[in-house]
Design a protein around this nucleic acid. Structure first.
Lengths: 216, 216
DNA sequence: TTACACTGAAAATATTGGTTTCCAATTAGT
DNA sequence: ACTAATTGGAAACCAATATTTTCAGTGTAA
């Protein structure tokens, strides 16, 4: 018999509509990380992302307005990962400033040192794309600076450094480390320092910047 | 009488072919600075640059292979401007480290603080454009780091700081200051610190990083 | 079993800008 | 005056992608 009202099953292959959408989004984000992080955002087409994610372009446009939106989501997700890493670092009972800072640096850079694609998306691919993304980047960078400031407050409270840096210091720190990381990623793996060495060097610069030395 | 061989005047409106080409290139570079520096490289078409430079697209393709080449030239030119500014700074007889560094910072950031378009092209618009430009950027950044190192050697030689920084320090410095500048440029002019204040803050961070304070 | 929801794949369209070609006007040299 | 060089501007062409639509196959609920 013919129902004279629309049927709304919602279920499909045993899963809810919402779940299915989430799943597709996850696949798209994975594909985006892979493609944007290796070939670059500019060199990636909607078609390619969809193919890599095994999602139809049709579905793509049901989930995102355009590729820019996908990039933005990926950017925000990766950023949250880093922010979480910074926030979640245990303020372990470090003996001195250097080891405390090293732990912090290792936590913050962890995701990007582990997975270069993340570094590339986070620091290269989102630049100069759109007005909206530039704004997002500005805000995010400030959030990051705030997180760094908070971390240093903790270290200062533990008496390991004289005073937490303020003003432009954390911003310069973030930009600087970012640049160091970009240079590292753009260097052939064969001629890079080890991760540990890299973290050590970065930590030393930071300690000097935030140490007890007074400008004269 | 009809010459049965091609004439090669070369002159046009009183100027040599080469001169005319140079002139067109100059106009194109001016237009590129204006458009890339305000609307952004991605939002600028060949047509727009040509129109703004009062050069025909026809001539454009006689002078450059494509827009990427124009951007690259502009980038290299602007960079040389900054490098020259750093190199040409007089190692004035500064009384202390802070004022010596301030002079250096003022010289290096001068062009970009004066003309925001330059800052934008130099730091934002060239990112993520092409493989070739990424390589160029990597090399340029290293040249810049070398120039900074040289400047600090001078300051150290004058006995104003204990030792010139080395390793990642100058790289982090450059990236950090760049980020600070980007944030500044992307901030509404009404809520920015003054240029002098900005330079002062940056100089203080540098002095701390390179000062006599020892990590502990 | 029937009407309709859901899906991926592919086809059809629309946009956008790059690139080349053509044209009319101007200038150089003889 | 005459031929060829030079130029800017417009038009013509093209290529690549984004975006929308269609289609055929499946699953769902009554």
């Amino acid at each position: 018999m013919r129902p004279d009202f629309p049927v709304e099953p919602g279920l499909w292959h045993g899963t809810e509509r919402n779940t299915r959408d989430q799943e597709r989004k996850r696949r798209l984000l994975d594909a985006a990380l892979e493609l944007y992080g290796t070939q670059g955002y500019r060199a990636t087409t909607v078609h390619a992302v969809c193919q890599s994610a095994r999602v139809s372009t049709r579905s793509f446009y049901e989930l995102y307005a355009d590729q820019g939106e996908l990039l933005t989501r990926l950017y925000l997700d990766l950023n949250n990962e880093v922010l979480d890493a910074i926030a979640a670092r245990t303020v372990l009972p470090a003996a001195d400033a250097l080891s405390a800072v090293k732990a912090l640096v290792a936590a913050a850079l962890g995701p990007m040192l582990e997975d270069e694609r993340k570094a590339r998306v986070l620091q290269v691919e989102v630049v100069g794309v759109s007005q909206a993304l530039a704004r997002e980047r500005r805000l995010t960078t400030r959030r990051m600076a705030a997180a760094v400031d908070a971390a240093f407050d903790d270290i200062a409270a533990a008496g390991l450094i004289e005073a937490a840096p303020k003003g432009l210091t954390s911003l310069i720190l973030i930009g600087g480390i970012t640049e160091a990381l970009v240079q590292r990623v753009e260097t052939k793996p064969s001629q890079r320092e080890s991760k540990a060495e890299f973290i050590e060097q970065v930590a030393q610069v930071i300690v000097r910047m935030t140490g007890t030395g007074t400008p004269r």
